[in-house]
Design a protein around this nucleic acid. Structure first.
Length: 337
DNA sequence: CAGATTTGACCCGG
DNA sequence: CCGGGTCAAATCTG
């Protein structure tokens, strides 16, 4: 193969990838703004204005522009597209079934004990998704339902690291995960690393959280908005910003392990839920840097509000919570964290 | 019995 | 090669 054409293809793919992200984010922005605008109109005038919203118009143009650009690039190269199709791919089992890397012996899975070699660990690691780390006194600060799927002793760490994935992963293909580890300096604090954004319907998750939210700030309306967005088949990665950081200290935001994930296995394309979730600012940084590398300004995703909310999460009490991270006191909770 | 957790196995990637 | 992330059978719990 011609290395140049490979390189070009790689760049193209990256461009398309970023454009797809941009498209997604513009869509979300449109939803958010339209929501805000509508409520503003009602609040200020008492009457819902029927005028076409210039913001909507502008965003529609942006979306159109994105779409055209992507289409043009896509027609030049057979880069798999993820715009809007991603949601349809999650039919409930796409994640439970690990893309048969073994040549498709999907029939007799679930073998173990001596056999099963080559079946275990058959997965593709997340590499490019948006990750950020927070410090928190509780691990249940976010209102998502998590299910623990692993725990590991970490080298040079006193405390094991626990691995959680969204409870709705099997049913909705939500790929959000988080890693939780006690801080060595201050074991009362947890270091929580979130990986990826929730693509499940957040409204369900919020139902689980029956306790009143003492963060105060418009949680209800936010959640309503989340539901709206989710129902519109749009990834609500934006929502994560307001969902997850009520009383957290953001340690490192906007870190993206950016590595073109569709360069390895061309057959896998973007079928798993949404692979376009990520950080808008970073996405654009990437795009711009490919053409012009003078863009280094970092947009901070989160504003690290630090209230000290400590509401009781309905799924688990504090004793369970802490026993979870005590290697000698295994967590025996029944539901998600 | 269904769903969650535990935990050893397994593989990816640096 | 090895640490860390994920899988999945076994086990637990309500």
């Amino acid at each position: 193969m011609d290395p140049n054409s490979n390189n070009t293809k790689s760049i193209k793919r990256k461009v398309v990838d970023q454009l797809v992200q941009g498209y997604e984010f513009a869509t979300q922005l449109q939803l958010l703004l339209s929501h805000q605008h509508s409520s503003h109109y009602i609040d200020q005038t008492g009457v819902v204005s029927g005028d076409p919203d210039p913001v909507d118009e502008l965003i529609a143009k942006i979306l159109s522009s994105f779409h055209k650009t992507i289409s043009v690039l896509d027609s030049c190269d057979s880069v798999p597209m993820a715009v809007e199709g991603s949601q349809n791919a999650s039919r409930g089992d796409d994640l439970a079934a690990p893309v048969s890397c073994n040549g498709g012996d999907s029939g007799d899975s679930r073998k173990r004990l001596g056999v099963g070699k080559g079946k275990r660990g058959c997965y593709t690691r997340k590499k490019r998704w948006h990750t950020w780390t927070v410090e928190a006194s509780r691990i249940d600060e976010d209102k998502y339902a998590w299910r623990k799927y692993g725990q590991k002793e970490i080298l040079n760490s006193k405390f094991p690291r626990s691995y959680f994935r969204c409870t709705h992963k099997p049913t909705r293909g939500c790929k959000a995960t988080k890693l939780v580890q006690k801080q060595e300096q201050d074991p009362s604090l947890f270091q929580i690393t979130y990986i990826g954004h929730h693509t499940c319907n957040v409204s369900d998750q919020t139902q689980a959280n029956t306790e009143p939210n003492d963060h105060g700030v418009v949680m209800d309306s936010d959640n309503a908005l989340v539901a709206t967005i989710a129902q519109d088949n749009v990834n609500e990665n934006i929502q994560e910003q307001e969902n997850d950081i009520s009383s957290l200290i953001v340690v490192g935001a906007g870190m993206v392990k950016e590595e073109d994930n569709n360069n390895g296995d061309q057959n896998k394309n973007y079928c798993e839920g949404s692979s376009v979730d990520g950080d808008l600012s970073l996405a654009w940084q990437d795009v711009m840097m490919m053409f012009d590398d003078h863009q280094h300004h970092q947009n901070h995703y989160y504003q690290g509000e630090t209230s000290t909310a400590s509401h009781q999460f309905s799924f688990i009490d504090n004793d369970q919570l802490f026993s979870l991270f005590d290697p000698y006191c295994p967590y025996e909770g029944t539901n998600a964290i």
